[in-house]
Amino acid sequence: MIRHIVFFSASDPKDVETIREGLMMLSEIPHAQHFEVGQNLRSDTITGPQVDVVVYAEFEDETALAAYKAHPVYEACIARVRPLRELRIAADFKATN
C-alpha cells in the first residue's frame, strides 16, 4: 500500500475553505482505497510553517497512485487550487503494515 500525504497553506487565510473545497474534487477519482481532506487543527505547539489543509489517501500500489495523478479531475483540481496556495508539500511512502 502507498500512503499519499499532501500539506497545503493558503496565500490568504480567507481562501482556506476554498482550497479545502477544491481539494475535495479529488474524492471523485476512483483509484484511492481511502481518501480524505481535513483542515489543520493547529494543535501542535512546535512552531514552523503553518499548514492549513491536509490531503491523505491510500492506494493499492504505485500504479494506482499514478492513475490517480493522471486523472482529468486531478488536473482540474490543480488549476483551481494552485493560484490560492502558498505552500505544497507532498510525500508518498510504502506502508509496512
Rank of each mutant, 00 (worst) to 15 (best):
Q39H: 07
K69Y: 04
R20T: 09
F35M: 11
M24C: 07
I5N: 03
H4M: 03
P13V: 08
R20P: 02
Y68R: 08
V37A: 03
T18V: 07
H34A: 01
A57L: 12
T47E: 06
I29Y: 06
R85E: 02
S11W: 04
V16N: 05
K94D: 11
T96I: 08
A76V: 04
T96Y: 13
R85H: 03
L84G: 02
F93A: 10
L41Y: 10
Q50W: 11
H71Y: 11
I89E: 09
I46H: 05
A32I: 03
T63H: 06
D52L: 11
V53P: 01
P83A: 12
D15H: 00
I78R: 08
Q50H: 15
T45H: 09
S11Y: 05
T18F: 00
E75P: 08
Y74G: 02
Q50V: 14
P30G: 09
S43K: 15
D92Y: 12
Q39M: 09
M1K: 01
L23H: 08
D52R: 03
A79I: 13
R88I: 04
M25T: 05
A10M: 10
S11D: 11
Q39I: 14
A76T: 12
D52P: 15
H4A: 05
L84H: 00
R82G: 11
I29G: 10
P30K: 15
P72C: 11
L41K: 14
P30H: 09
P49E: 05
A64H: 05
A57Y: 03
R3M: 06
H31I: 04
E36I: 05
I2L: 06
H71D: 13
L23Y: 06
H4V: 00
F35Y: 10
R80T: 07
A70I: 06
L23F: 05
E86G: 10
K94V: 07
Q50R: 15
D44S: 12
E62D: 14
I46L: 09
H4G: 02
R42V: 04
G38P: 01
R88C: 02
I5E: 01
A90M: 00
A91T: 15
A91F: 15
K69C: 14
A32R: 05
E21M: 15
E36Q: 09
K94Y: 10
P72I: 10
Y68F: 09
P49Y: 00
S9W: 03
S43E: 15
V73E: 00
T47I: 13
N97A: 13
R82N: 13
